[in-house]
């Protein structure tokens, strides 16, 4: 199925959940309301003519500067081994209440992808069995891929810039 067909199928099943779509784009995408994510995803996997059995990737984008509202966007790339088609699903959530439904129950591989998206962008996935940081240490503060994240002068006991280290050696105090 091409982008038009997939988008039409999802729109027919969830007329209210689809916010926008790019059915004719080079990489077809469909944007859904955050509350409907889990339902749409389950339908994408279970409907026989869609059969998106492969969750390729879950990722997030901070929309500050490229969209009207500085929301956080979660992006799911899903594909189907059975039909060979793929689509990008998006959902935008406000940055101070970035919560989405987890899809770990639909694709087990989502577990680590969602942990990474929480770790680096601070999007919380409700219903995730074990939502911890995955790449950064537990004691890390903030989510570095958010555009308003500022690097602290020291992190985990180490200075984060070379100049500070030199200054410390020259000054002889820590």
């Amino acid at each position: 199925m091409d982008g038009n067909g997939i988008v039409a199928a999802v729109r027919a099943r969830f007329p209210d959940a689809v916010v926008a779509d790019g059915a004719a784009a080079k990489d077809p995408w469909i944007q859904v309301a955050p509350v409907a994510v889990a339902d749409v995803m389950r339908h994408l996997r279970d409907a026989p003519d869609l059969a998106f059995d492969h969750l390729v990737c879950v990722t997030g984008v901070d929309l500050t500067g490229i969209a009207e509202k500085p929301d956080l966007r979660c992006v799911w790339h899903v594909a189907s081994y059975a039909h060979g088609h793929q689509i990008t699903v998006r959902a935008d959530v406000p940055r101070d209440a970035a919560v989405l439904g987890s899809v770990t129950g639909i694709w087990p591989s989502a577990a680590w992808h969602e942990r990474e998206t929480w770790d680096l962008l601070g999007i919380r996935f409700e219903g995730h069995p074990d939502l911890r940081r995955i790449l950064l240490p537990e004691e890390w503060v903030g989510h570095p891929l958010r555009k308003d994240w500022k690097e602290a002068p020291r992190a985990l006991g180490f200075p984060t810039t070379r100049r500070t280290l030199l200054d410390e050696i020259r000054g002889g105090n820590g």
Partner: peptide, 27 residues
């Protein structure tokens, strides 16, 4: 391996994402 790239119209990547095989293999 998936590479997802977002541009803000400047000469720098706005967001870049690498999805690699080892990540899910380890999970």
């Amino acid at each position: 391996t998936l590479v997802y790239a977002v541009s803000d119209g400047s000469e720098k990547p706005y967001r870049l994402r690498f999805r690699t095989g080892s990540f899910t293999a380890l999970s």
